[in-house]
């Protein structure tokens, strides 16, 4: 299809000097003019809509920068490294929420990436054909459940369960192991960094699974069959043929999931505990950027407080933008290789 621009609407009969009366000529010219106008109008309309997508993005960036100017001027770069968060003295710093955001996402990825890849492996190599679609749909339903549902479930079901069974176990097992004892120190609150990380893991699992399955499916069957023909086991085919071939795609999918995890708000807000401090233990309550904004924005009094929260939002947006952009570049590279 020629895409590089408009082709003018012309009247072939008119040009070819067909046998038409003068009145008809005028009529045809009129219709032609209308069509030409409609054609141009529609083209410009769609183009404007495409540009509007860019306008939305620049609007987001501009409004966040504009809203966070007072905080930027007051705290400068030190905002990034300051742990204090005190609405009374109006002293704010972002390091505790950034720490919580990064740590919860890291826990989520550590758990969800291997499991997601294994599920994708199951779906592409082991699963009988008739089961593939139902399981695939089930995994995607998991992705469709709104995050607030994960939040309420995490708060009322998952956190008490962790508090009663898992966390005391972790504390007693790792209590005497150096380094790890700090990681699992303190009373079992139920809510905290670890709980938030686990909930996030469940939430991003479907994203990783569905993208890995798609890229695994894209491996040319010839490659896999050759490896099987050499006598490779299923695992060896997955490990030495499928994974290397799809590496960029898998990395892209993982980064996409990471972007979701970093920005996830409601599920985390329920179970993080909203404590503005950095503690070495992952059992302790903490906070993330998005949870801080969700919890405090409507109650924030004063320009600096509000502005600091918007600045947090800007930081979150910049972080996720970089991660997501990287993810898209990776996926684009895979598609380029597959010749799509």
């Amino acid at each position: 299809m020629n895409s590089s621009g408009e082709r003018p609407v012309v009247d072939v009969a008119f040009q070819g000097g067909g046998v038409i009366s003068a009145a008809e000529k005028v009529d045809r010219a009129k219709v032609l003019k209308r069509l030409r106008f409609g054609d141009n109008a529609f083209r410009h309309l769609t183009r404007a809509a495409a540009v509007a997508v860019l306008v939305i993005l620049s609007g987001i960036i501009f409004s966040l920068v504009y809203g966070s100017l007072p905080a930027m001027q007051k705290f400068g770069i030190s905002f990034l490294f300051d742990e204090s968060w005190n609405p009374v003295t109006e002293k704010f710093g972002a390091i505790a929420p950034i720490y919580g955001t990064v740590l919860t996402s890291l826990i989520a990825m550590l758990i969800a990436v291997p499991i997601g890849l294994f599920i994708a492996l199951f779906l592409t190599e082991l699963c009988p054909m008739w089961l593939r679609r139902p399981i695939g749909i089930a995994v995607e339903l998991l992705a469709g459940i709104p995050s607030i549902i994960y939040g309420i479930w995490g708060l009322f079901v998952f956190a008490p369960f962790l508090q009663q069974y898992v966390q005391p176990f972790l504390i007693s097992v790792f209590g005497n192991v150096p380094v790890l004892s700090n990681l699992f120190a303190g009373p079992p609150y139920g809510i905290g960094i670890l709980t938030a990380g686990l909930i996030l893991a469940i939430m991003v699992l479907p994203f990783i699974t569905s993208i890995s399955r798609d890229v695994f499916d894209a491996v040319p069957p010839m490659l896999k069959e050759s490896a099987y023909g050499l006598g490779c086991t299923t695992w060896e085919v997955a490990r030495y043929v499928v994974l290397p071939f799809t590496r960029v795609g898998v990395i892209g999918g993982v980064m996409l999931a990471l972007g979701r995890a970093l920005g996830e708000t409601m599920a985390v807000t329920f179970v993080i505990g909203n404590a503005h401090r950095i503690s070495g233990s992952i059992l302790a309550p903490g906070t993330t950027i998005s949870a801080t904004i969700a919890n405090e924005f409507t109650e924030a009094v004063g320009d600096i407080y509000t502005s600091s929260l918007i600045l947090l939002g800007l930081i979150l947006f910049v972080i996720t933008f970089i991660v997501l952009a990287f993810a898209r570049l990776m996926l684009m590279r895979l598609n380029a290789r597959l010749g799509k």
Partner: peptide, 17 residues
């Protein structure tokens, strides 16, 4: 490219916007 990023951008940022 931008649309794909907006697709997974944190929704709380949209709220702030």
């Amino acid at each position: 490219f931008i649309n794909d990023i907006l697709l997974s951008a944190p929704s709380i940022v949209v709220g702030l916007f």
